[in-house]
Design a protein around this nucleic acid. Sequence first.
DNA 1: TCATTATATATGCTTACAACATATATGTCA
DNA 2: TGACATATATGTTGTAAGCATATATAATGA
Lengths: 127, 127
Amino acid sequence: MNGKIERNLNAKERACDFSLRRLSRFIEPSILLFLSKEDCHGYELIDRLSFLGFHKEDIDIGAVYRVLRRLEKEGFVKSKWESRGGRRRRMYRITRQGRELLSSWIERIRERRDALNRFIRLYEEGL
Amino acid sequence: MNGKIERNLNAKERACDFSLRRLSRFIEPSILLFLSKEDCHGYELIDRLSFLGFHKEDIDIGAVYRVLRRLEKEGFVKSKWESRGGRRRRMYRITRQGRELLSSWIERIRERRDALNRFIRLYEEGL
DNA sequence: TCATTATATATGCTTACAACATATATGTCA
DNA sequence: TGACATATATGTTGTAAGCATATATAATGA
């Protein structure tokens, strides 16, 4: 209809192409992981990313919010506005599909970790 | 002078931004790793990528050659044409700077592997 | 001998998105 | 009252991922 090609995919199709695509996508599984433990708002998530070795100065704050909006559009999380002492913030909750997406991320992440270990081993062999 | 901004960086500046950039960059360290073991030409490298868990069908052949050309332009590898039974191929050799680049890649890859392990552990805690 | 496949090295094109900057609004504290 | 922290976004732009295509020779084999 309009020039833009429709690119929304469901969780299974989209999965989590860790293998050959950009790693900034890592904030996506991170967000899903934290949300799988408890509801959170964006700013809090940014803080928690440091648990995974991200340095706060390095985090693209904007990207976190953008990923959150996208995940919501795709149905992997949902949000509602909350007022806490006059300050409004958007609380996110993971959906069932979100948990499924997380679990396929985990598979990929294990594969990836194994690949990195192979890489390191191969390197050390040569020393 | 011309509109294009000069963006060539040396090994240290550029390092290997595994942390927040695209993973397709993984073919770069892979190439460096293989070349650190022995001289190789592009087509052979493509074969060897499968040792690291890449499926041959998934590899963007063109990307491999492009990375090789870029690495040479940046001084991390050098090449010369070789004729083997009439067939010409470009043999690549890693440079000292290339080995340095590889070793900083290794650092990043270890960090990354550790981050993935933390991620997996965090996930498993919640089960 | 002609077609096909494997070897071998590239370049062209399009579009998504990483990286960066900027906008906005309120609460807190000195 | 000015700065800083909290909180959530959007705008912009260059780059490169992902795909297709080009090219040339050697080997295979029907």
